[in-house]
Design a protein around this nucleic acid. Structure first.
Lengths: 158, 158
DNA sequence: AACGATGGTTGCATAATAAAACCTTGTAGT
DNA sequence: ACTACAAGGTTTTATTATGCAACCATCGTT
C-alpha cells in the first residue's frame, strides 16, 4: 500500500486511524494495557516479526502513546502515556463488539471491572447530554467549525 | 502480510480487528454512517483502489456488517445492518480521541448530536456499574469463562 | 574475559495494496 | 432496434508492507 496515513482526510476518525490503524498497533497497545512492558513479551505474545514490532513501538513512542524507559533491571520498558490511556474507550468498544458478535463458546473471554468495587463496568454506549443511552439511528452528525471545505459535498447522516 | 486475521488469539479485540481492522474498512463504514450508499460514492470520497473497495465491501457484506440491495434507481446500495450500527461506539470513541489529540485548527470537524433534541452527545467514556466515569487506571481485567488456556500466562492489568 | 539474554537491525522472500485497463450490465435517447 | 454512456465491478501488472532468518550490540553475570 502506498500510504497508511489518512491525514489529508480532515476527519478525526481518519486521524486516529493514521496513528493506531496499522495491523499490530492496537494489539500492542492492548498488551501494554494488560501489563506487558517489554519487547520480548510483546514478541512472544503476539508472534509478530521483530522488525515490525520494532517499527511499531518506535511509531507509538513518537506519537506519544507509549513512553520508553529503562526499567529497574536495566531493560527497556514501554508504558502508556495519558494519551495512550485515553484509548481505553476505543479498545473497550471494540472488545464489547467482539464479545457480542464474535463470542467465545463458553462466555466472555475477559471481564472488565471497577478496580475499587470489583463490579463489572457498563457496556460502552453512546449517551445523550442527559445520560440516556442512544441507538445509532438517534445520532446525527453536524458540521463543526473545523470542517474542511473539501468534504462539504458529503451528506451528513440520512 | 501473511494473514490479517487474528482469530487464533482468543481475544474479543483481536476478533473485532479481524473483521474491521483492515486499512479501509472503518473508513468505508464511516462513509455509510455518513449517508453514502454507492460504490462510486465510496470510491470518490476515499480515493481507494476499486479492486480493494470491491473486496472490502464483499467482506463487510459477508460479515453481516453491510447489506447490499438494489436501490430504487436500479443501482446497488450498501446499508448498515444492526451488527454494523453496533460499531458506532467504536467509531465515536476513535473520533473523540482524534478530536482531542489530533485536532483540526479551527475546532471540531464534526459534532454528533441527539437527533431528537439536537444537543451534542456525551464524550465516549468508561463507566462503573453505577454510572460514574472511570479513569483508565481504575479499570482492571479479569478472566471470564471463555478465557482460553493458551493465554493464561498473560498478567491481567498492573 | 567469556557467555547468555535482551533488544534490536539488516537483507531477502512473499503477500497485500495501488493503478490502470478492461469487461458486463442496465438505462436513456433516438 | 441501435448507439451511447454510466455504474459497478474484474483482471493484470507494479509497488509497498510484512514475515522470516540471520546477524549485531549492549548489558549483567559468572
Amino acid at each position: 500500500m502506498k500510504n497508511s496515513n489518512f491525514d489529508y482526510m480532515n476527519c478525526s476518525l481518519a486521524q486516529t486511524l493514521s496513528v493506531i490503524g496499522e495491523h499490530w498497533s492496537l494489539l500492542i497497545i492492548r498488551d501494554v494495557f494488560m501489563g506487558l512492558r517489554r519487547f520480548s513479551e510483546f514478541q512472544k505474545d503476539l508472534g509478530i516479526a521483530k522488525n515490525i514490532l520494532s517499527e511499531r513501538l518506535k511509531r507509538l513512542v513518537a506519537e506519544g502513546i507509549l513512553e520508553k524507559t529503562k526499567g529497574e533491571a536495566g531493560f527497556s520498558e514501554y508504558r502508556l502515556t495519558e494519551k495512550g490511556l485515553a484509548l481505553q474507550p476505543v479498545l473497550l468498544s471494540m472488545t464489547h463488539w467482539g464479545d457480542q458478535y464474535k463470542p467465545a463458546k463458553k462466555g466472555k473471554r475477559l471481564v472488565f471491572v471497577d478496580r475499587a468495587s470489583g463490579k463489572p463496568i457498563q457496556r460502552m454506549a453512546v449517551r445523550s447530554h442527559d445520560g440516556r443511552k442512544l441507538h445509532a439511528k438517534e445520532v446525527k452528525a453536524k458540521r463543526g467549525s473545523g470542517y474542511a471545505s473539501e468534504r462539504l459535498d458529503v451528506p451528513l447522516a440520512e
